[in-house]
Computed example of a mutant assay.
Amino acid sequence: MGTMITFPSNGGETPGYLALPSTTPAPGIVVIQEWWGLEPHIRDVTDRFAAEGFVALAPDLYHGKVATEPDEARKLAMELEYDRAVAEIIAAARYLLSRAEVRGPKVGVVGFCMGGGLSLLSACRSDLFGAAVVFYGRNPNPIEQVRSLTCPLLGLYGEADQGIPPTEVERLRQALQEAGKQFELHIYPNAPHAFFNDTRASYRPEAAIDAWRRTLAFFRQHLKTA
């Protein structure tokens, strides 16, 4: 359904995977990769959003590199410059809004694993986003950055996530409450990290199906035109 494109960013160009729905104009969504890179699963998720009526763009934050082993993915994630990545995500949002197929005035952003944290961080640094969804992403550091969040937030987490335990989710909840932000956080019982990725052993169908339903409803609610 989609195709590789490039869009202007940081004085240069960033590659990305763009998927268009059957009917346009439509709301736009930026889809942010896991630490593996822009691999088939993320392209598939981008296609799924297009099939649901969104113009979806997944920026390639590794610029062509894709990991297949955890050690390799960890290395790529550690080498990623978060400020540059956030700038590319914001540039992807700006690019979507420049296309005739996209109905503004804002776009959504959703990320998984590493991309989940980047989704929240991007929504704290730009007002181009009308809704942000975090799938098991780490909290910003320092967490007080959520005071700058510019849109409603949906967070989806697994109770059995060893890297992002429920205590971290509750820390985020408290920070968002203190900042007076609009948000929903859900923790799925017994679900591990990456419960949505149906190409991994971590996949949990029941949690994934519910999280997808919530994500679509959230974007449809908050990306209505002004």
Rank of each mutant, 00 (worst) to 15 (best):
A50W: 06
M1Y: 14
M78V: 10
V169D: 03
H63Y: 05
T150A: 15
D210I: 07
A207Y: 03
R48E: 12
P142Q: 01
L149E: 02
S98E: 15
H193M: 08
F219S: 14
V30P: 01
Y62T: 13
C124Y: 02
P105I: 01
S148G: 07
E206A: 09
E79M: 08
T24A: 12
A93R: 00
C124Q: 09
T14W: 03
G115K: 04
S148W: 12
G111H: 03
P25E: 04
A73Q: 05
F218Y: 11
N139Y: 01
K75T: 14
F49A: 05
P25M: 10
K224R: 15
R173Q: 12
F54E: 08
A160I: 14
E144L: 10
L80I: 12
A87L: 11
L97A: 03
I187Q: 01
E168M: 10
K75C: 04
A77P: 01
E170R: 11
Q174C: 00
G117I: 13
V66E: 05
T24H: 05
R200G: 08
V55E: 02
C124W: 06
F195H: 05
R138I: 15
D44Y: 09
T225E: 12
R147G: 13
T199S: 05
T199L: 01
T225L: 05
T6W: 03
A56G: 01
T68M: 10
P189M: 12
A56I: 02
N10T: 14
A211V: 05
L80G: 14
R220Q: 14
E168Q: 15
Q177W: 02
V146R: 06
E69K: 09
T150P: 04
G104E: 01
R48C: 13
G116A: 10
P27G: 07
V86E: 00
H63K: 10
K75L: 11
G155Y: 00
R43H: 11
R200E: 15
I143F: 01
N10C: 13
E81W: 01
T3V: 07
H186S: 07
I143S: 03
S98I: 08
G111P: 01
A56L: 01
P59H: 09
P192N: 02
E81S: 12
V169L: 08
K65R: 10
L57W: 04
V110F: 10
E184T: 08
G104N: 06
G2L: 14
V133C: 02
A160R: 11
Q182D: 11
S122V: 04
G11E: 12
P40F: 05
R94T: 15
R138M: 14
G111A: 11
H63T: 13
K224L: 15
R171P: 00
F219G: 08
T199I: 06
K224A: 13
L18W: 02
E72P: 03
G2R: 01
A26Q: 05
A87N: 13
